[in-house]
């Protein structure tokens, strides 16, 4: 009892954890609030010595300008199409491979997964450099194909990682019993294993879509004149267009925020870090 009574550290924690949490939550929310606020504020509120914290002069002018400028939609389309194609190709290449990896003997599987992990440690700029040199020669600069190929570099190890985890938990016995019933291996794979794995594949492909939608480094290396949405944000940051930047940034964020929110319960550690099991 005596030691517990002396537990001053424990008492401090019991009293302070909640205020601390509130502070953290505020620090987390304020930047997002400011971003949206700037995109709907009159310049008087923002471009002064003393910017206001609350919205005093509301306006939709910046949004109208951006939506009608004709510079948004090409970038939006490029980002959207590239992200969608990347997700589709990633599924087709990674699903069969991750199924095989998940059925490997434990030791070999561990080595394969570790190799995938190491490919993610290479600096992007080191991979993007020769890719960019190569794509100039292949005339793939500024094209959808080029960017999809580049985004797959990062996304394939990522999705494989997730899907190995998905396939691992599907019992081998299911396939075996299908094969005893006369199904071929391919047949049992397509009609037994894949349907069970479908939810996992769907979630994984949404994450891939998001990663590609946000991707900046490869897009910067591989675009000369046709920007993606993240590049458009960067372009306005450099030009100093305060309000366009905020508006573009908000547009870029909306799908990400929606999908992330919808997938919240899948945001587990092994999805994020691509855990080593």
């Amino acid at each position: 009892m005596k030691t517990i009574g002396k537990d001053r550290f424990g008492k401090i924690i019991d009293k302070s954890y909640f205020p601390l949490l509130v502070v953290f939550a505020l620090v987390t929310l304020i930047p997002v609030y400011i971003l949206v606020k700037i995109s709907i504020s009159e310049p008087v509120d923002v471009l002064t010595q003393h910017p206001t914290f609350l919205i005093h002069n509301f306006t939709l002018e910046h949004w109208e300008k951006v939506l009608t400028s004709g510079r948004l939609w090409p970038a939006f389309t490029k980002s959207f199409v590239v992200a969608t194609l990347t997700a589709i190709f990633a599924i087709f290449i990674a699903t069969p491979a991750s199924y095989v990896i998940s059925r490997l003997p434990k030791k070999v599987k561990y080595i394969v997964i570790l190799t995938l992990f190491f490919t993610r440690m290479f600096p992007n700029v080191g991979i993007a450099l020769p890719i960019s040199v190569k794509f100039i020669r292949w005339n793939l600069m500024d094209t959808y194909t080029g960017l999809v190929l580049a985004h797959l570099i990062e996304q394939l190890p990522f999705i494989t990682w997730i899907l190995v985890g998905t396939f691992e938990v599907i019992p081998v016995d299911l396939e075996k019993s299908a094969m005893i019933d006369g199904a071929s291996r391919i047949r049992s794979l397509i009609s037994i294993v894949i349907p069970i794995a479908t939810p996992g594949i769907a979630v994984a492909s949404l994450f891939v879509w998001l990663n590609s939608w946000n991707e900046f480094t490869y897009a910067l290396y591989l675009s000369l004149s046709e920007n993606t949405l993240p590049l458009q944000v960067y372009y306005y940051v450099n030009r100093g267009g305060f309000f366009q930047t905020a508006t573009y940034a908000t547009i870029l964020t909306i799908p990400v925020a929606l999908i992330t929110y919808a997938l919240q319960r899948y945001l587990k550690s092994d999805y994020l870090g691509g855990a080593i099991k």
Binding site: L21, W213, N214, V233, V256, I259, T260
Partner: peptide
């Protein structure tokens, strides 16, 4: 609330 930044692209 704490997870909010996950829904915000790095560049944003």
């Amino acid at each position: 609330l704490i997870l909010t930044p996950m829904g915000v692209p790095t560049i944003v």
